[in-house]
């Protein structure tokens, strides 16, 4: 009985550690609940299958789309858009954010504009993108970029700005020059948090996928989902949603691994 009581105590202690088995069980229970509610609602006929597919219909749809390879074409098409949009954003936001967080003058110059743009709804810009860029992959990548870049930039600037002044001061007293501090000290010091920012904003890239594929795509998970809506194929919509979630989860884990690999010291 004693162990049970301590387990309960550890669950109810703020920031308390819990056994990893307990974490796994808790996660499984929540998943089982969600899937269970879905199964009961659909198999039980509480919700019409026009609106809510039965789970095995989703699986069968997945298998049939996978067997002729079209599923992978759509997945790859979406992954390509997300990765390109995200990389384009990160490649600019990381160095620029570092400069923004480090040098007041860069921050003063950019922040007002960036903050203005970052509150514009991306959807409101889509007509403009189509007019300017057309309806190719460039348009979709641009939507992802706009969904991610401006907030990513501000978040990375904040991380650079939060680096301890005395860490930079200490490097000066060891001979580091002022113009070297940004790459020799501020960047490595902020790196774990920068990777965290990338991980979080990668999630946003996935959430903008459907917006990106809304207008003019002819492949992709958002595209098949929209097409399925017109044909009332709710099982395909479910399949696309689940795959986007799954891919998001995988990219999240990839960034966690990247952080552990690049910054073992911050574990």
């Amino acid at each position: 009985m004693a162990t049970k009581r301590t387990l309960l105590q550890s669950f109810t202690t703020p920031f308390g550690e819990i056994p990893s088995a307990a974490a796994l069980v808790a996660a499984c229970i929540v998943w089982a609940l969600v899937l269970g509610v879905w199964a009961i609602a659909s198999y039980g006929g509480y919700v019409a299958d026009m609106f809510l597919p039965v789970p095995d219909a989703v699986i069968r749809r997945g298998i049939s789309l996978a067997s002729d390879g079209t599923l992978f074409v759509h997945i790859w098409s979406s992954v390509k858009v997300v990765i390109l949009g995200f990389l384009l954003s990160a490649v600019i936001a990381v160095p620029l954010g570092l400069y923004m967080g480090t040098y007041k003058i860069v921050q003063a110059a950019l922040e007002p504009l960036v903050n203005f743009i970052r509150y514009l709804p991306v959807t409101s810009l889509v007509p403009l993108f189509i007019l300017w860029i057309g309806i190719g992959i460039g348009q979709r990548v641009t939507v992802i970029f706009f969904g991610v870049f401006f907030s990513q930039l501000i978040m990375i600037a904040d991380e650079a700005h939060a680096v301890s002044r005395d860490l930079v001061n200490a490097s000066y007293t060891l001979g580091t020059k002022r113009n070297e501090a940004i790459w020799h000290v501020i960047f490595p010091a902020a790196l774990p948090n920068i990777i965290n920012t990338l991980r979080v904003t990668m999630g946003w890239a996935w959430t903008y996928l459907v917006v990106a594929e809304l207008v003019a795509a002819n492949s992709g998970l958002g595209f098949i989902s929209l097409k399925a809506m017109r044909g009332f194929q709710v099982d395909t919509i479910f399949l696309a949603i689940m795959l986007i979630g799954l891919l998001g989860l995988i990219s999240d884990m990839a960034f966690r691994l990247l952080r552990r690999w690049l910054c073992p010291w911050a574990a």
Partner: peptide
């Protein structure tokens, strides 16, 4: 600042990486 004047701070300033 320069390396000819070393400093030890009250706060911990080792490079964590």
């Amino acid at each position: 600042p320069g390396g000819d004047r070393g400093m030890v701070f009250q706060s911990y300033t080792l490079f964590p990486w």
